[in-house]
Design a protein around this nucleic acid. Structure first.
Lengths: 143, 143
DNA sequence: TATGGTTGTAACCGAAAGAGTTACATCAAT
DNA sequence: ATTGATGTAACTCTTTCGGTTACAACCATA
């Protein structure tokens, strides 16, 4: 299993907006060109980012803008905006209650799974879009 | 996206083996009864656990046994045994190299993604089968 | 107010993977 | 040889992702 590419595409979108929103209108077609996917995919992800309050989109006239400063957007915000809301692990639903292991497995494992998921999310919370943007800017300036 | 239920099923399998291997022959049919899925699914996962060196299976006569002590098996061992080997995040493949963001996004994000994945795996490494087994035993004894 | 560039979405398609099942060859102790 | 297991191939069904076309709705502005 893998997370969908929506997370990296969404990050790419936000970086492009941060980089270009002051100098030009950032449309789904413009983003599609940079990311190299179909504009509809961009519009769908952009819609998710908008619903999550990370970007503002000008309907009709076009263009996407950050809805709050880049240092107030973490990778976890991006991740939660584009990944379906659900538990990280799919638990087998119907263990046999007549087996001692079967009727206790959920009690024992649910907490472990939560801890594992929390470890991942805490790590994502550590990095902001502003940091990623600074890294990007640095590499570009060194070229 | 979600991890498949193979991880929780595999953990369930190993707990059953730890619980019952001394008192009875633990076959795929027995396990299928406790987990409440088709025996073929058990055999496939058991095969993965065997390939990873976590269990030994007696062909012909039948029965599965832990290949090493439960305190030497971590949740990460189980996870890696049953999940396809690959990166956690699916990165969009072909960002446009003519866009400054497009040509730097991999350099910037690859490391972040590795760190996130490592955070999850480190957390999984913290818990052993022996601990999960002890928790299970404790709940059963309190019933 | 008509135009034109955008966004928002519905409706598809194909590929891949998970979950489940049946069927059967193979194995090894008795 | 029999018997109860395992190993595995083959198939179905469902869901999701990634991709695409098509088109309605939107709105600044000419």
């Amino acid at each position: 299993m893998q997370f969908s590419s929506r997370f990296t595409i969404a990050t790419h979108i936000l970086l492009c907006i941060a980089m270009f929103e002051d100098s030009q209108k950032v449309t789904s077609n413009f983003l599609a060109g940079s990311i190299n996917v179909n504009p509809v995919i961009i519009r769908n992800i952009l819609g998710q980012l908008s619903a999550a309050g990370l970007v503002e989109i000008k309907a009709g006239v076009g263009g996407a803008y950050l809805a709050r400063p880049a240092d107030k957007i973490t990778l976890l915000d991006i991740f939660k905006a584009v990944e379906r809301e659900e538990a990280l692990f799919h638990f087998h639903e119907n263990p046999n209650p007549q087996c001692p292991v079967g009727r206790t497995i959920h009690k024992v494992m649910d907490g472990k799974i939560d801890t594992i998921q929390a470890a991942m999310e805490n790590e994502m919370k550590e990095t902001t879009l502003a940091e990623v943007f600074a890294d990007t800017r640095k590499i570009i300036d060194e070229e």
